[in-house]
Design a protein around this nucleic acid. Structure first.
Lengths: 222, 222
DNA sequence: CCATGTTCGAATGTCAACATTAGGACATGA
DNA sequence: TCATGTCCTAATGTTGACATTCGAACATGG
């Protein structure tokens, strides 16, 4: 058996993790500037490492930087939501369709485990449930066995987290009401043999999330 | 009218361009190591800028780097081809479907211009035709108006270039025979109102390229 | 009052020196 | 002979100092 080789990480990835957490915490709200000197001081690393970490976050789409104008956290405009979820729908569709033929029994079992874990944690509303949600989709992408597809997913993954975090904080009811059932349905369909239905369901799963968030954003700017 | 703002570039992007060209030239064949000190000396910039440029190329999927193990040009294995073209098919499908409803008359005209330019340059076989091929798809993605989708395309674009370059060098006949017609068909369908047919055609366009390249690779290892 | 030119500060872009690591060559022992 | 442990070197990872650039505030001229 092949272990996933113990990859040592550099200070850049470490810094990226810290900054990403801080963004999810709300320490750096959308639109906030991320100054290299301040971050370097707070994280106790050099500016070079922070700079490289910010480049990683930019690859994830969480921040945006321009020449000599610094790095800022991305906004959450309806346009952004529309773009991210549209791309995600296409990627999820492909991942599900691929997994339909390539998923191993272990992969399928992992999906079920996550769904049952979600059902167990349904009362503890909060970010933990979101983590399971994301983990489920991570598992689907992993089951597809396509590393480029995984990369493409990682380029929108953090943005999806940020958006969903906001959605859940504002209106947890409809999220809690549907998460388990929707993911259970996906897990079942990936085991089945109806590619068309699976493709439509995977896309619809994303689009419903998109609509929910857009409705929330629209209500916010009333 | 809004010009696409004259973005000043740093030495990192400049270095990335040079190195990318060198990879396409064959100066750095697949699997070749890209040493920071050598590149810094040759390009007459600091190692930091080269390092940042290599990070950009890694975002494009052209190179791969690991902790303290340096950066190397990616290989061109059947697995890699399969992965890239599968993802590209999904992205092209989405881009075409989106462009179907969002493309402006200018966008459509740009597509036609590229097709006619391809027909004109059909006798001068070589990398110029490939540039037009890529430019066509760039235009489709641009017409979709989805910047995240454009980003996702850029994450596989250079790899597609590298792969197609190899395919054309080995067997230009079937490429030359079909490029113009296939792209003309796409340009027409994007103007039409048959989403299903457009989606299938866009995907098939990619899959035929994939099959051609895989056949070539298989013949190489006889 | 508006438009243009200038100064200034704060931030990023760039660089070269130092620290750390991976992987191979070599020696040692069973 | 093979396995293990120890250097050693060439590369990357990291750092702090220096150079450059942007944007805003201010001054100037029409």
């Amino acid at each position: 058996m092949s272990l996933p080789r113990a990859a040592r990480r550099g200070l850049a990835e470490e810094s990226a993790d810290r900054i990403r957490d801080a963004i999810f915490d709300g320490t750096f709200p959308p639109g906030a500037p991320l100054r290299e000197v301040d971050l370097a001081r707070d994280l106790d690393v050099s500016r070079g490492s922070v700079r490289e970490g910010l480049a990683l976050l930019e690859r994830e789409g969480l921040v945006h930087s321009a020449w000599h104008r610094g790095t800022t956290v991305i906004d959450v405009t309806p346009r952004d939501v529309e773009e991210v979820y549209t791309v995600r729908a296409a990627l999820d569709r492909l991942a599900a369709l691929t997994a339909l033929t390539t998923a191993s029994p272990d992969d399928l079992a992992a999906l079920d485990d996550i769904v049952t874990a979600m059902a167990a944690d349904i009362d503890r509303r909060g970010p933990h449930l979101l983590a399971l949600d994301i983990a489920f989709h991570d598992a689907v992408y992993a089951a597809s066995g396509n590393s480029r597809l995984v990369q493409a997913w990682q380029a929108v993954r953090s943005q999806v987290c940020l958006f969903q975090l906001r959605r859940i904080a504002a209106a947890p009811e409809d999220y809690l009401a549907r998460v388990v059932a929707e993911h259970r349905e996906l897990a079942t369909l990936i085991r089945g043999e109806e590619p068309e239905l699976l493709a439509r369901t995977a896309e619809e799963h994303v689009h419903s999330a998109r609509r929910a968030l857009l409705a929330h954003l629209a209500g916010e700017n009333h």
